[in-house]
Amino acid sequence: MEIERKFLVKAEPDLGDATSVAVRQGYITRPGDSVSVRLRQKGAKFLLTVKSGEGLVREEHETRIEHGIFETFWPATEGRRVEKTRWTGALPKGETFEYDVFEGYHSPLRLVEVEFESRKAAEAFIPPDWFGTEVTGERAYSNEVLATEGLPSETAR
């Protein structure tokens, strides 16, 4: 299970001790399917993820796969991909943030996500000043919709 809140980014953060990794991901399924099947390369790791549900709490199952398997299925994601740099760091109260800087067609989009252990913790979270408008559960800001439909009109170039 994944409990996560997602926000636009209002101001570039001080990334301090945050680490970064290049991410490319593509979707085998299409928006509107009851589940989402995603391939992701995160640095040297290759992952297959199945998600279902919408909003704050979603089901998520992820497994590591071998590079050859990733390459076998990657062509099936043509036209349904995003590339980004993901920065991971700690917020002042100890929560972990994932700050995504989208590249290519999806530039200049910036999103930040925070995952939680419980719904109660998620609902009690007070975002720092550099977080912008909350977009949790907004379909247009899901990576799958970004990969297939592009940027929402309010963030388009």
Rank of each mutant, 00 (worst) to 15 (best):
122 A>Q: 06
32 G>Y: 07
134 E>N: 09
98 E>P: 00
130 W>F: 15
17 D>C: 05
33 D>C: 13
80 R>V: 00
6 K>L: 02
24 R>M: 13
38 R>H: 10
149 E>C: 12
14 D>I: 09
101 V>N: 01
130 W>L: 05
64 R>F: 04
62 E>A: 10
60 E>V: 09
138 E>S: 04
116 F>T: 05
55 G>E: 06
81 R>D: 00
111 L>I: 13
112 V>E: 00
140 A>M: 02
15 L>R: 08
76 A>P: 02
88 T>G: 04
34 S>F: 11
124 A>S: 13
95 E>D: 12
17 D>A: 15
146 L>W: 02
8 L>Y: 00
86 R>E: 00
52 S>V: 06
128 P>T: 07
6 K>W: 01
151 L>N: 07
89 G>Q: 07
7 F>H: 06
75 P>Q: 01
121 A>D: 14
123 E>W: 01
1 M>V: 11
86 R>P: 00
53 G>H: 07
98 E>N: 12
74 W>C: 02
114 V>Q: 05
15 L>A: 00
2 E>M: 02
133 T>W: 02
12 E>Q: 13
16 G>C: 10
72 T>M: 12
84 K>W: 10
7 F>I: 08
109 L>Q: 05
108 P>H: 02
99 Y>M: 09
99 Y>I: 07
25 Q>G: 03
34 S>I: 11
48 L>I: 15
101 V>K: 01
24 R>E: 15
28 I>L: 15
109 L>R: 05
112 V>C: 03
12 E>R: 15
143 N>I: 08
106 H>D: 09
26 G>Y: 04
